[in-house]
Amino acid sequence: MIFDPSAIELPPSYEKIQTTGHVVVSHYPPGTPTVTPVVVVTLNRPANQNAFTGQMVQDFEKIFPMFDVDERVKVIVLTGAGKTFCAGADLDIGFRAGKERMIDHRDGGGRVALAIHRCRKPTIAAMQGSAVGVGMTMTLPAIIRIAYEKGKYGFVFARRGITMESCSSYFLPRLVGYSNASYLVSTGGVFPPSSKHFGDLFNEILPDSAQVLPRALELATEIAENVSPTSSYLNRALMWRDTGSAESAHLVESHVIYHMFGAPDQKEGVTAFFEKRKPNFRANLDDNPPPNVPWWTEVDTGRNPKAKLPSKL
């Protein structure tokens, strides 16, 4: 028998939750006393070029499940403190093996990527500076990546004597194509974001690093104010949770959209359109989902936790 996990207790403010310090969370606008629709997650080791650590894994696995079940949060923006987004794994700490059985090991970067991927709220990566290795792969589950024109970006694993991680063997070829992915990981080179080898990986490339985060926040606000979180999540799931054929996709899509035709968000979206106002989407992602969700086979045999609201929000 599979038991339900303990409910997640949601904080009155994300700016006051305790993290390891390697990652910090802020509201947008910052300093807002209660939770805002857009929250900002910042890699916070600027003196170390935000090099990736085990503490970051702990923080991501703590906060993203919160975002997933917190209906106050609509969009997450991921960025870095200082001039570098993320310099990859912290080589001063190094790569360690032998402390656990190989079968029990779970790659830290992959745990971060899955925390982002499994979160039903979308993430926008504001890559205000260079990124390599896990600094690149952790952004692959994001819905949008914004880069700095003069930054350098690359998948350098082969040059460090290691292999792909953070579920990148799944995400990267699907995002840039197998030919580009093969070139990027085989050369292990770093390139400007405009390089043809990245394909359309970067949705926007800006000339000034100071423009990257504001642009990400602008996009996040637009999404938070105009898009149904339920529809957004289901649209991403329809693309990523591949059914394997056009016919199977047709069946899944038919069932999902038929359910959505009568859902509150559909009624609100149409009403707001005719009334020429912003919609007020209020459907809870855990309430009344399409009956065929999940249509995919869950690898994790545990159930997702629900939100445990504090007495006063």
Rank of each mutant, 00 (worst) to 15 (best):
E15A: 15
A246L: 14
G161Q: 04
A249T: 13
P46E: 02
H259P: 07
I63T: 03
P264H: 01
K74G: 00
E253D: 13
P29A: 09
N284M: 00
S13A: 12
P290Y: 13
L234V: 08
Y153L: 05
G21F: 05
A89H: 07
T19D: 09
I223K: 10
V212Y: 01
A89I: 11
G188C: 01
I205R: 01
A115M: 05
D286K: 09
P173A: 06
V190L: 00
N304T: 12
E71A: 12
A87T: 00
K267L: 06
P5N: 14
R174T: 05
N288E: 15
V23G: 15
E225S: 08
A87G: 00
V73I: 14
L309M: 01
Q128I: 08
P305A: 10
I143C: 02
D286Y: 06
E149Y: 10
Y14D: 01
V40W: 10
G189Q: 11
R215T: 01
G98L: 03
E247Y: 06
E268C: 01
I162M: 07
P207H: 00
R277M: 13
D208F: 02
Y153G: 04
V132P: 03
R215L: 02
A158V: 09
G110C: 07
H22W: 05
L184Y: 03
D107M: 02
D265I: 06
V77C: 13
S195F: 04
V35N: 09
T137H: 06
P5Y: 07
M1A: 15
E268P: 03
L285F: 04
P279K: 12
L309G: 00
M102P: 13
D200C: 06
T32Q: 12
K150V: 06
G189K: 03
T139I: 05
Q58S: 11
S232R: 09
D200K: 08
L114D: 06
H197I: 02
K308P: 07
S245W: 04
A89F: 00
D104F: 07
E275D: 14
V252C: 13
N203Q: 13
V270M: 14
P290A: 15
P29G: 11
S13C: 04
T36H: 00
S26A: 06
T187E: 05
A158C: 02
P29F: 14
G80M: 03
